[in-house]
Simulated assay, not measured.
Amino acid sequence: MKRQKRDLTSRAYVRGYRAGVSGKSKDICPATAGESRQHWISGWRQGRSDFWDGYQGISNLHCTPNLP
């Protein structure tokens, strides 16, 4: 658990993904500059892509099959 809290870049990505899949604007990014902002924006872009593809939230990701 402590290691997860230390990895700020993955936390930024996940939070950006959650914002994107929820349909929120990228203007709400909490980071102003740096690596955290880049990862947040990357997560947001992936989340928006999934949102446009029909995902309605994080819980739907567990139901999708893993295709090779």
Results as ranks from 00 to 15, higher is better:
7 D>H: 12
8 L>R: 15
9 T>A: 12
9 T>S: 13
9 T>V: 12
9 T>N: 14
9 T>G: 03
10 S>T: 14
10 S>R: 15
10 S>Q: 14
10 S>K: 14
10 S>F: 10
11 R>F: 09
11 R>Q: 15
12 A>Q: 02
12 A>D: 00
12 A>K: 01
12 A>F: 02
12 A>H: 00
12 A>E: 01
13 Y>M: 10
13 Y>S: 04
13 Y>W: 15
13 Y>I: 03
13 Y>D: 07
13 Y>A: 07
13 Y>K: 09
13 Y>N: 11
14 V>E: 06
14 V>R: 13
14 V>N: 05
14 V>L: 13
14 V>M: 09
14 V>H: 08
14 V>P: 00
15 R>D: 08
15 R>Q: 12
15 R>E: 11
15 R>H: 09
15 R>Y: 07
15 R>K: 12
15 R>G: 05
16 G>L: 03
17 Y>H: 05
18 R>G: 08
18 R>T: 11
19 A>P: 02
19 A>C: 12
19 A>H: 05
19 A>S: 14
19 A>L: 05
19 A>M: 08
20 G>K: 03
20 G>Q: 06
20 G>L: 08
21 V>P: 00
21 V>R: 03
22 S>I: 07
22 S>K: 09
23 G>H: 06
23 G>Y: 10
23 G>S: 07
23 G>A: 09
23 G>Q: 09
23 G>D: 04
25 S>W: 08
25 S>I: 06
26 K>T: 08
26 K>S: 15
27 D>Q: 12
27 D>E: 14
27 D>A: 14
28 I>P: 02
28 I>F: 06
28 I>G: 10
28 I>N: 07
28 I>M: 09
29 C>S: 08
29 C>Y: 02
29 C>N: 08
29 C>K: 02
30 P>Q: 07
30 P>Y: 03
30 P>G: 07
31 A>Y: 15
31 A>P: 01
31 A>L: 03
31 A>D: 07
31 A>G: 01
32 T>W: 08
32 T>S: 13
33 A>M: 08
33 A>Q: 10
34 G>V: 06
35 E>W: 10
36 S>D: 09
36 S>K: 11
36 S>T: 12
36 S>G: 11
36 S>W: 03
37 R>W: 00
37 R>Q: 07
37 R>H: 02
37 R>E: 05
37 R>F: 01
38 Q>L: 14
38 Q>I: 11
38 Q>S: 13
38 Q>R: 15
38 Q>D: 15
39 H>W: 11
39 H>K: 14
39 H>S: 11
39 H>Y: 14
40 W>H: 00
40 W>P: 00
40 W>T: 00
41 I>F: 05
41 I>S: 02
41 I>G: 01
41 I>D: 01
42 S>L: 04
42 S>T: 07
42 S>Y: 02
43 G>M: 04
43 G>F: 02
43 G>L: 06
45 R>A: 07
46 Q>C: 04
46 Q>D: 11
46 Q>K: 14
46 Q>V: 09
46 Q>I: 06
47 G>W: 01
47 G>E: 00
49 S>T: 14
49 S>Q: 14
49 S>M: 13
